[in-house]
């Protein structure tokens, strides 16, 4: 079977600045990692490869430095990696990103399964997966915490707010996964060597036949109009040392005033 894994390179901390004119993230000069949930998606693909044989191909859209993430995926055991990169792709919203990824997947397909993390730690939208599935007209499931492969279908467990949902999807399909799905493996020394040496084909707007107006910031349906820093300040009363008992009493009063402690109640 042929499996495509979508990965995103994300900043390795929350300490990222925004470009106030475009409202997009400034990624230069910040350490970058593979989005952690995408590693669970990759592990699921590698697991299928180990158990029943599969070609695992990794795709990532981003600037040229995204190559690092793809080489890391190769060192973990992916068979091939595609860098989807073009200046015209920069600054895209989830819709424009899904359009571009769908074009890349169509060009290299057909795929039996497409896997991705449920969301990325930077944008946290979780939208690119389902949008890509809709554009490719394949069924998709999200929040996948367990999967069991059948012959031409896959059983999944979705871990949602109030419980566990079980679904069966035919192949081909797209799944976005949670970290409870598996434990991502570490790269081996030989894997690292392979990752460094592998060829990385680049797909750009030309090779994907995407007009610059239909991708990136220009092709986006949404526009960031403003970014601002939230104010979190409350600066309430502070108690320490010998005043702590007074602080504790204050808390009890606040709870009582909200009827959260019922007097005379046995406990």
């Amino acid at each position: 079977m042929r499996i495509a894994v979508l990965v995103k390179q994300v900043p390795d901390s929350d300490d990222v600045q925004m470009d106030e004119t475009t409202g997009t993230m400034v990624r230069e000069g910040v350490g970058a990692i593979i989005n952690p949930l995408d590693l669970n998606a990759l592990e699921a693909a590698l697991d299928l490869k180990r158990n029943r044989g599969a070609l695992v191909s990794v795709f990532s859209m981003g600037p040229p430095r995204t190559e690092e993430a793809l080489r890391e995926a190769l060192s973990l055991g992916a068979d091939e990696a595609h860098l989807v990169s073009d200046k015209a792709f920069a600054g895209g919203d989830t819709w424009a990103t899904a359009l571009t990824l769908a074009a890349a997947l169509r060009k290299t397909g057909p795929w039996d399964m497409i896997l991705a993390g449920e969301k990325a730690t930077d944008g946290e939208t979780g939208q690119v997966g389902p949008e890509t599935a809709a554009l490719l007209d394949v069924p998709c499931s999200t929040y996948v915490s367990e999967m069991e492969m059948g012959d031409d279908s896959v059983m999944v467990t979705r871990s949602v707010e109030d419980g566990l949902e079980r679904q069966r999807l035919p192949l081909p399909c797209l799944l976005t996964v949670l970290r409870s799905l598996n434990e991502p493996s570490m790269p081996t020394l030989s894997g690292k060597k392979r990752g460094r040496r592998a060829k990385l084909p680049v797909m750009n707007a030309d090779s994907l036949d995407i007009s610059p107006e239909g991708a990136g910031l220009k092709g986006s349906a949404t526009r960031v109009v403003k970014v601002f820093y939230p104010s979190l300040t409350r600066d309430g009363a502070r108690y320490s040392g010998k005043d702590l008992d007074e602080g504790v009493n204050r808390l009890v009063e606040e709870l009582q005033s909200r009827a959260l402690i019922q007097r005379g109640e046995r406990s």
Binding site: L232, T233, R238, Y239, D245, G247, V248, L255
Partner: peptide
């Protein structure tokens, strides 16, 4: 502490049991 309405500065292993005791007293 900046986002707190009530800041209790000290060892939580001392403070939390004090809160538990105070809540119990209030309930009884």
């Amino acid at each position: 502490f900046k986002t707190a309405d009530l800041a209790l500065c000290g060892d939580l292993f001392d403070i939390v049991p004090r809160i538990i005791a105070a809540v119990r007293r209030a309930k009884e």
